Simulated assay, not measured.
Amino acid sequence: MLKAYKFRLYPTKSQQEYFVKTFGCVRFVYNKMLEERIRLYEDSKLNPDAKQKLPTPAKYKPEFPFLREVDSLSLANAQMDLNKAYNNFFRDPSVGFPKFKSKHNARASYTTNNLKGSIRIEDRKVKLPKIGFVKLKQHRPFDGVIKSATVSMTKTSKFFIS
């Protein structure tokens, strides 16, 4: 059974900067891939998933070196989110075409996956890839295996992990 826990994070200033940079990079990659998919769709007038060369986050790294500074799994999850939104649209057009992500959205977030213990909770701190340990308010004991983690920020600059 899958279960989600949500805890409040208390990152340092440099960790906050990293989170904001990651939110921006994830949004940037999502929008770039959506832009390219729209172009591919208009060029072919077919479902772009029909064995066409679809963009990946790695394609943008040589052109935009700031993408190398953030967790690659967060960029890969942005690609998976776009694929899911695109497939939902083609399955049921009433869902609506995928929209570009806005910088001024109510909640910025990114998701990363746990590979070989890259995400773990120890001593009221959570270890995240490329950033290390971040303090958190653990209001209940955690039980189970961590599959992935989503870091989010509210408009009031409060950080959470689930």
Results as ranks from 00 to 15, higher is better:
Met1Gly: 08
Lys3Pro: 00
Lys3Met: 14
Pro11Cys: 07
Tyr18Phe: 13
Tyr18Cys: 00
Phe19Ala: 03
Phe19Val: 06
Val20Pro: 05
Lys21Met: 12
Lys21Glu: 12
Gly24Leu: 02
Gly24Cys: 04
Cys25Tyr: 05
Arg27Tyr: 02
Phe28Ala: 04
Asn31Trp: 11
Asn31Lys: 13
Lys32Val: 00
Glu35Trp: 09
Glu36His: 11
Arg37Asn: 14
Ile38Trp: 05
Leu40Cys: 06
Leu40Asp: 03
Leu40Trp: 00
Lys45Val: 02
Lys45Ser: 11
Lys45Glu: 15
Pro48Ile: 11
Ala50Glu: 13
Gln52Val: 08
Gln52Tyr: 15
Gln52Trp: 07
Lys53Asn: 10
Lys53Ser: 15
Lys53Tyr: 07
Leu54Arg: 04
Pro57Phe: 11
Ala58Gln: 13
Lys59Leu: 14
Tyr60Gly: 05
Lys61Phe: 08
Pro62Ala: 04
Pro62Tyr: 00
Leu67Met: 06
Arg68Gln: 15
Asp71Ile: 10
Leu73Glu: 08
Ala76Ser: 14
Ala76His: 05
Gln79Met: 12
Met80Ser: 15
Asp81Ala: 10
Asn83Phe: 12
Tyr86Phe: 11
Asn87Val: 05
Phe89Ala: 02
Phe89Cys: 06
Phe90Asp: 01
Arg91Met: 08
Pro93Ala: 06
Pro93Gly: 01
Ser94Met: 06
Phe97Ser: 04
Lys99His: 14
Phe100Trp: 00
Lys101Trp: 06
Ser102Tyr: 02
Lys103Tyr: 12
His104Arg: 14
Arg107Glu: 11
Ser109Thr: 10
Tyr110Ser: 04
Thr111Arg: 12
Thr111Gln: 15
Asn114His: 11
Leu115Asp: 13
Ser118Leu: 06
Ser118Cys: 10
Ser118Lys: 07
Arg120Phe: 02
Arg120Ala: 06
Ile121Gly: 07
Asp123Thr: 03
Lys125Asp: 01
Lys127Ile: 04
Leu128Tyr: 00
Gly132Ile: 09
Val134Arg: 04
Lys135Asp: 06
Lys135Phe: 01
Leu136Tyr: 09
Lys137Asn: 08
Lys137Cys: 02
Gln138Glu: 14
Gln138Leu: 13
Gln138Ser: 00
His139Tyr: 09
Phe142Ala: 00
Ser148Lys: 10
Thr150Trp: 09
Thr150Pro: 01
Thr150Met: 11
Val151His: 10
Val151Glu: 07
Met153Ile: 09
Ser157Val: 04
Ser157Asp: 10
Lys158Gln: 14
Phe159Val: 03
Phe160Leu: 08
Phe160Ile: 00
Phe160Glu: 02
Ile161Tyr: 02
Ile161Thr: 01
Ser162His: 11
